[in-house]
Design a protein around this nucleic acid. Structure first.
Length: 478
RNA sequence: GGCGACAUAGCCAAGUGGUAAGGCAGAGGACUGCAAAUCCUUUAUUCCCCGGUUCGAAUCCGGGUGUCGCCUCCA
């Protein structure tokens, strides 16, 4: 049974989809006016792992993540750059796709754009007006929170307390200070669409309600995003959706904790935003993914180069054991297992069960990684034993790693690189020198190859080679 | 003022009633022509502090301290 922490109830609740065997997930995606930063990346990576894991556990998953391609930030940025809002969106959607791919994030099943769902948005607003949950003030449509008794259920606040905390000037045309815009009347020079209330554009929150229900039905199984979306964004989505349908909007609300940069929240005003686009220039982006997985998703985490480097080394260790496994697998045969080997396969089964148990428990990726590290030690010990190894032991271990990697997604799969003929000759030559105990000549070849980014390792089973990841990373260019 | 999160070794980080996972870094050892890779040993009598409940608490309860966040656009 899979349990996930639910912001709505404050507990870890069992995952109970509306339709058995199927899960609909909606995650709030980026406003595509700039490159996304590493805090956004944490959320995207989490939902990527969640949907992959549910898929692994046999659910038929539909994962939807929107692009917000119309709002104040979009309009201002487009104006600044002297291009249209549409052109701006296209540029940064492309950038989003590149950067998420580098982080090992799979595309969602649907990536709807707000501007392509204006009819659904208008329809939803109309339903709210019909139910007296929204009202028209000179072409601006506001949601009337006072008419929705459950307002505040997600953020666990009541209306009066929210009002007392308001730090901005309140629009006097509103019936209640917390009322929010569903539709904004057209302003000169801004994109706008025809509606029953005149030309205008959607407000901030309505697109997610409209698009999520469009793709996933009126009750979602899982909805979420970063913790700072709890209020007001998700609170308002509940008001809009539940207000219109009378049905629970989402069964499970999942929120990902903050990532702070050197103990401070990233914000443009502090000038401490680190984008994935920038980070990719110097560091393997999969190390960032691994770093995120090494802590529980709900805990706040601090980011620094140093922490990222620690994570990168841990990731390297797991990649090495897989490299070691593959290398040996090519050189051994299957055979009858001895006692230690059958014990090892029993242990492998225990590791698999442990992996599933900890992931089932609120997606504890930190513990899942610990399982992989423990198996790494067991595996390396086996690989080092003088009695030799067997294919029918190594293969299931390797398969388990590859299986878990369909969820965690940080294993490098570039060992298929073909060595050039000349390099192969050099390696053969070095073997010859070694047989003659001409260590100086042999070492010279090893050093030369290292400079070219090829690392040679001598093992009792013969020489093996691999690509120098660190050298690769330093040379990485986007 | 309201709501919420977090505090575990040098660093990162799991663990939420049964006697402190895992990683990184450090030290010592094994293997090796030298490396690399790998393994072994070693690093928290203790989990921010003070009370309480319990046979038993890092874990539950009460109080305090500290850090951070939300209540305004934000992942």
């Amino acid at each position: 049974m899979i349990r996930l922490y639910n912001t709505l109830t404050g507990r870890k609740d069992p995952l109970k989809p509306v339709t058995e065997g199927k899960v609909g997930i909606y995650a709030c995606g980026p406003t595509v006016y700039d490159y996304f930063h590493i805090g956004n990346a944490r959320v995207f990576i989490f939902f990527d792992v969640l949907r992959r894991y549910l898929d692994y556990r046999g659910y038929s998953v539909t994962f939807v993540q929107n692009y917000t391609d119309i709002d104040d930030k979009m309009i201002n940025k487009a104006r600044e750059m002297g291009i249209s809002v549409k052109e701006l969106a296209d540029i940064f959607i492309q950038a989003y796709e590149d950067d998420t791919a580098a982080l090992g994030i799979l595309p969602a099943d649907h990536h709807p754009r707000a501007t392509e769902h204006i009819p659904q948005i208008i329809d939803l607003i109309r339903r709210l007006i019909d139910k007296n949950l929204a009202y028209d003030v000179d072409g601006d449509i506001f949601y009337h929170v006072g008419a929705f008794p459950d307002y505040g259920q997600l953020s666990h606040q009541d209306l009066e307390e929210l009002v007392s905390g308001v730090r901005v000037e309140i629009d006097q045309r509103k019936k209640h200070p917390m009322d929010f815009a569903l539709w904004k009347r057209e302003k000169a020079g801004e994109p706008s669409w025809e509606s029953p209330w005149g030309r205008g554009r959607p407000g901030w929150h309505i697109e997610c309600s409209a698009m999520s229900m469009h793709f996933l039905g009126e009750t979602l199984d899982i909805h979420g995003g970063g913790q700072d979306l709890i209020f007001p964004h998700h609170e308002n989505e509940i008001a809009q959706s539940q207000g219109a349908t009378g049905k629970p909007f989402a069964r499970h609300w999942v929120h990902v904790g903050y990532l702070n940069l050197e103990r401070e929240k990233m914000s443009k005003s502090l000038g401490n935003v680190l984008t994935v686009r920038d980070l990719r220039k110097t560091i393997d982006p999969l190390a960032l993914r691994f770093f995120m997985l090494s802590a529980h998703y709900r805990n706040p985490i601090n980011f620094s180069r140093e922490y990222l480097e620690q994570a990168a080394k841990g990731m390297e260790r797991l990649n090495k054991v897989i490299y070691n496994l593959k290398d040996r697998l090519d050189k051994v045969e299957a055979g009858t297992l001895d006692k230690k080997e059958s014990d090892l396969l029993d242990m492998l089964q225990d590791y698999r069960e442990k992996f599933i148990a900890v992931m089932d428990d609120d997606l504890n990726t930190a513990e899942a990684l610990a399982v992989l590290f423990e198996l790494a030690k067991t595996t390396n010990t086996y690989l080092n034993r003088p009695e030799g190894q067997k294919k029918n032991v190594l293969e299931p271990i390797l398969n388990f790693y590859l299986e878990t990697d369909t969820i965690l997604g940080f294993i490098k799969n570039d060992s298929t690189v073909i060595l050039e003929k000349e390099l192969e000759k050099l390696i053969a030559k070095r073997e010859e020198y070694r047989r003659q105990k001409d260590w100086a000549a042999a070492d010279a070849i090893r050093d030369k190859l290292k400079e070219q980014g090829i690392i040679l390792e001598d093992t009792p089973q013969g020489v093996r080679w691999k690509v120098d990841e660190k050298k690769n990373a330093r040379q990485r260019k986007i």
